[in-house]
Design a binder for these strands. Structure first.
Lengths: 339, 339
DNA sequence: TTGAAAGCGCTAACAA
DNA sequence: TTGTTAGCGCTTTCAA
């Protein structure tokens, strides 16, 4: 057997077969760990593989077998800001962890927003067995349509879950907000306000609704609402507006930790003690939450679990199993110093 | 031609050819934008494509053409901490930006450290045309070996650049450290110390060497060195050790901003003014550098440019062009309040 | 248990 | 300009 050294290319399965003196089918079986190959033959083949330094061509394999063993996690390019997003990193870690036990390779697909077709074609072109979409923001749902062609699991509630029969996993924002608010009420606070987040995102809407439910149930004032945009400064502004109303307030549920940080700052600036005068509960359990003064009591998002759950569901979906379309991950309250 | 609806699969190029009444080759030409196809025929084919909702199978394409139009950026799984790493995000953004103009799709490959073979096989299995490796840490060089099989561009100086004829782009740490140190000297400081980083990383070694060169040239004291591990607390410790020596010090070049933050804190705690008593220059221009008190004077790393440059080089390498094995990105000093 | 042979869907000479 | 014809490297029935 001669190899043209000028164009020497990666060894193929066929070369291994020749080297081992068996058929290509047998080599294929050995490579894929088929049980019905003599230990003897297996050894011979493995020897040949080692000698030739053979690495299977996955592309050819994919074409023939219609599987890739690759799962994509789609990252909107703009969200490269995503790297700064304290929510995203743990999700990725959870996905990676869940997948490391499997034969799947994880693929963060940076979706160029300027050329969405590039991503679409990659996804639909047989490069992956399934995809994960973390849609932190409402608009990221350009991928819902692919759901009928490619197994996809979404993270975060889709805007219209009924419209599309997509699979998704999310935390129960409504219930979490209730837990937070009820903690405040349980502390004896009678005038519990809320600083809500953007009302065009599920997280913003649902958390406000949770607060509302608790307040209604407890007979509190349902008008103590100010809306922010999830940024720290918007939280500060909202807190100021709340205080400027001149009505008593002794507790605030804030829809995320960033805004909570702003609110606490305002409170202290205006001479109110936290939690003495006003107790504050945040949401997200961001990394900085424990370093604030006082340390922030907040709702912990099990982001890594969310990622892991998404990955597990997708793997089962690919395997053709029946899986629930809607999976809810529990959250829990972390009591620190602010409430 | 009949399609079994139970097993209805994605339309193939062959189906498009039949629908349009042309050969598969012609369809292929249209899909790939070949110039030598009649406008008329092109229109007919495109119609058929639209009617059938045809999306080319990239895997088959890859197998036949030996190209994938995919570039991988390898991310060590542990480095999922990477997402918190202020250096990594801009690099990724730079890569993404450079690639968005091309036909390449960017693929962040999360390399499972528990099963390194998975990544290796993916890379060597024909899934990508080339790879980018950002080796922040010395150990990440398990991929150097692949360089002979797959075009690879490294970010950051390899440990033994002479040993492996790999391609890499890096900032000139030695020169940058000189710039920083000379700024201090230019300010009239006569006793300029340094807090160096880990001496098992190129960044740590080179920055120390740069300081040394400047000090030697200026006739300063070459013994004013303390080593940290790039963490803030290690910077504080190092500063304390420096001050405890009891010798005069009126300037410090610190090998990264994290350590610089720790050093400044210690300085102020011990009643020394910055930059009055001791001027401090950091390195990295981390996002928080401008928010310190006083705002930190530091060396700016053009991380996005580094990423973009890496991507451009790789693309040219894949195209078979000659490219330099060593590319150095310039840095620049940002003068703020600390020196 | 092993081998032979027919594709997987596409590209790329080479002809026409 | 368009079509014909071999493959790309592997998997997978089906026989042996």
């Amino acid at each position: 057997m001669t190899i043209d050294s000028r164009t020497s290319r990666a060894p193929t399965l066929e070369m291994v077969a020749a080297e081992a003196g068996v058929s290509r089918a047998t080599v294929s079986r050995v490579v894929n760990g088929s049980p019905k190959v003599t230990a003897e033959v297996t050894a011979i083949v493995n020897d040949a593989i080692a000698r030739l330094n053979y690495v299977p061509n996955r592309v050819a394999r994919s074409l023939a077998s219609r599987r890739t063993d690759v799962i994509a996690l789609i990252v909107p390019e703009s969200t490269s800001t995503v790297f700064a997003d304290p929510f995203f990193a743990p999700v990725v870690r959870g996905v990676a962890r869940a997948l490391s036990d499997t034969d799947y390779t994880l693929n963060l697909l940076i979706a160029s927003e300027a050329r969405p077709q590039k991503t679409r074609r990659y996804l639909l072109g047989g490069n992956v067995d399934g995809a994960l979409v973390v849609s932190h923001h409402a608009e990221d749902h350009s991928y819902v349509g692919l759901g009928s062609t490619l197994p996809i699991v979404f993270g975060g509630r889709p805007i219209n879950p009924e419209t599309f029969d997509s699979y998704f996993v999310d935390v129960d924002n409504v219930h979490s907000a209730r837990t937070a608010t009820e903690h405040l009420i349980g502390l004896g606070r009678r005038h519990v306000a809320t600083i809500a987040g953007r009302q065009d995102m599920p997280a913003g809407i649902d958390r406000l609704n949770g607060w509302r439910e608790s307040i209604d149930a407890a007979g509190g004032d349902p008008a103590l609402i100010e809306i922010g945009d999830f940024s720290q400064s918007s939280g500060a502004d909202a807190m100021n507006r709340l205080l400027d109303r001149g009505v008593p307030i002794d507790g605030v549920f804030v829809a995320n930790d960033q805004m909570a940080a702003g609110a606490v700052q305002v409170l202290r600036t205006r001479g109110l003690s936290v939690p003495g005068d006003v107790a504050v509960v945040g949401y997200d359990d961001d990394t900085f939450a424990s370093t604030l003064t006082p340390p922030l009591t907040t709702m912990h998002q099990p982001s890594a679990d969310l990622g892991a759950t998404m990955a597990e569901l997708l793997v089962r979906l690919i395997a053709g199993e029946e899986v629930p379309r809607r999976t809810i991950i529990p959250t829990h309250l972390i009591v620190r110093g602010s409430a």
